[in-house]
Design a protein around this nucleic acid. Structure first.
Lengths: 249, 249
DNA sequence: ACAAAAGTGTTCTCGGTACACCCATGC
DNA sequence: GCATGGGTGTACCGAGAACACTTTTGT
């Protein structure tokens, strides 16, 4: 029984991507098969019951790998959803029974958010239904309590974006300052002064200027940068000692 | 079977208090009974398996209530520990079997940290062993993987202390600026300039000056303040719109 | 009157913000 | 040569940090 599933614990992953313009999230179309009923067409977050003897982080990574073909991505646990009634509709319970072949009563789910470079992910058609990217702002409702989970993930994402260099996980390896700014504006939802933004980010010692420029654009080509993780780690250590003061809002 | 325990999910609570001088944490003495073996005397964090049909937050609140007699306290989920080997010693497994009367194989634990006013908490002697406050800096090791959990909680606590007004959960309702500063210095681990600290915190519109002063001290008595939660919530809403800019370290 | 902690103001520096024009390329 | 977005500098303001003395009480 070394790969039996644990029927009471699952992971759900909010997988974010950025297409250069909008924040996207990867969803699974539940009603792909029975398209006979398109009115109740619903989507869900990718997720899975965990296996016995499997770390929960490992279960999240497994889910991600199965869906996108990516293995070395930013992944962060951010919540636990445990309402005994969170999966209550008979058809929801039926769907789970059909998918995993186990009878379940109550599932506690551990939630993760992942940041991937859309261009690198190779979507695998899965047995569960079709997987696809959706603009976050278009999403009205999701199956189970997944809308709540998404909203929570978004909140954390915006907070993290201001406090940690996670933007680079969503951009390609080489990027222009303008692309970085577009990402901030898309996620934060307001415009940022371009001159001040450059002044700020170009001061970061872990933003390395490359020799390359944009190609094939009908205007002045932008210079390209990359994020130097090693330099960032060094910077963190230096700054550990300094006094960052209280800021409650 | 409406109050059966779920044998694969538990909560563990890191309960912090402040005695005016040091940061304290509430621990359970595992070897209280068999004091015959004082060399392997170990402590653990308070925790419990969850019940079926119980929200995990509710399980954490239940644990807290049973131990301290307090019900309306600051409590925040901060992690999940799921290493299948996290409880591996035979005597650990035996202890759990004895305590809950269920056979367990692997337990995933959801961790919480709580902030309580030490003076208000009424410690209940429990069947599990003796409960007591310990100075955080004195703690060398704990049972299971609880040392790791404590370290994680401490990290989060210091981060939160700089970003949210949680200090007031650890102080008495009425407090002096000096007491507040002592708390910050104890948790952050460095000294803060008194003049700058006052200038900073007295600007907060949710810190309300009371009519009272300290009594029975053999020096100039300090003025007392209280934290006004309602005023704080208002302030938060106002500030939502303003641009807080990127600060990575 | 003395001990002990409370309470107070100024100067400097740095980082955030507002704001408008020239530059390099493709067509 | 013109359209398009890339790239640059300056002046103001507010907040953090460094720093030392006076005030109020109990004994």
């Amino acid at each position: 029984m070394h790969s039996a599933v644990n029927p009471s614990i699952s992971v759900d992953c909010v997988i974010f991507g950025f297409d250069g313009k909008d924040l996207m999230v990867l969803l699974i179309d539940l009603n792909r098969k029975n398209a006979a009923n398109p009115s109740c067409r619903e989507h869900k977050l990718p997720g899975s019951l965990i296996l016995e003897n499997e770390e929960i982080d490992a279960a999240a990574n497994r889910t991600l790998l199965e869906l996108t073909g990516l293995s070395d991505v930013y992944l962060r646990q951010f919540g636990v959803f445990s309402d005994p009634e969170r999966i209550r509709k008979p058809e929801d319970l039926q769907w789970i029974a059909d998918t995993y072949g186990v009878k379940v009563s109550r599932i506690v789910t551990i939630t993760y958010y992942a940041l991937v470079k859309i261009d690198k992910s190779i979507l695998q058609p899965t047995v569960e239904g079709e997987v696809g990217w959706h603009r976050v702002q278009d999403i009205r409702n999701l199956a189970f309590d997944h809308k709540r989970i998404l909203v929570n993930a978004l909140e954390l994402l915006t907070r993290q974006l201001l406090n940690e260099p996670i933007a680079f996980e969503l951009l390609q390896k080489r990027f222009s300052v303008r692309q970085l700014q577009n990402l901030y504006e898309a996620i934060l939802g307001f415009e940022i002064d371009n001159r001040n933004f450059r002044k700020k980010v170009l001061k970061f010692p872990f933003l390395k200027l490359l020799d390359e420029k944009e190609k094939l654009v009908s205007h002045k080509p932008a210079r390209l940068y990359k994020f130097d993780k090693v330099a960032y780690e060094k910077e963190i250590k230096k700054s550990k000692l300094q006094l960052n003061f209280i800021r409650f809002f």
